[in-house]
């Protein structure tokens, strides 16, 4: 390892730490919701302020994806894919965490639950 390698590695560590810090700090307090995307379309929104356990099903590219929410956390319970990476991932609850089920084109993200569908006036 030469000097340049050292500098490069140092810069990269700083960069990745900055990236992580940025995502951590961009986390907002307040009510959250889990948003499930099929590609770029929202196919399910789960209010994470509710405590009780609930199961939802969405249609993924390879069939049904079952999602469970409980205590403000959400996880993928079962899905049809070769490695089952996303159902092995477990619960997520912060906005810098995502569950990606690539073979099913499903992404579960946590977002602030502050958007309204409409305002009565």
């Amino acid at each position: 390892m030469n000097k340049q390698d050292g500098i490069l590695i140092f810069i990269l560590i700083i960069l990745s730490l900055f990236g992580m810090a940025f995502f951590y700090l961009s986390e907002k307090d307040g009510p959250k919701k889990a948003v499930v995307y099929y590609e770029d379309q929202v196919v399910l929104e789960i209010d994470l302020t509710q405590k009780e356990e609930k199961t939802y099903q969405v249609e993924g590219f390879n069939g049904t994806v079952t999602i469970e929410s409980k205590d403000g956390k959400v996880k993928v319970v079962s899905e049809n894919s070769p490695l089952h990476l996303c159902s092995k991932q477990g619960y997520i609850s912060s906005s810098y965490e995502t569950i990606v089920c690539l073979p099913n084109k499903i992404v579960v993200a946590i977002e602030a639950n502050d958007s309204l569908d409409a305002v009565a006036k």
Partner: peptide, 18 residues
């Protein structure tokens, strides 16, 4: 501002502010 909602397909309810 007169809001009428059905049953949302992809969530439990609509959120309507006043």
């Amino acid at each position: 501002g007169n809001v009428v909602v059905g049953t949302p397909q992809h969530k439990d309810y609509y959120q309507v502010g006043i």
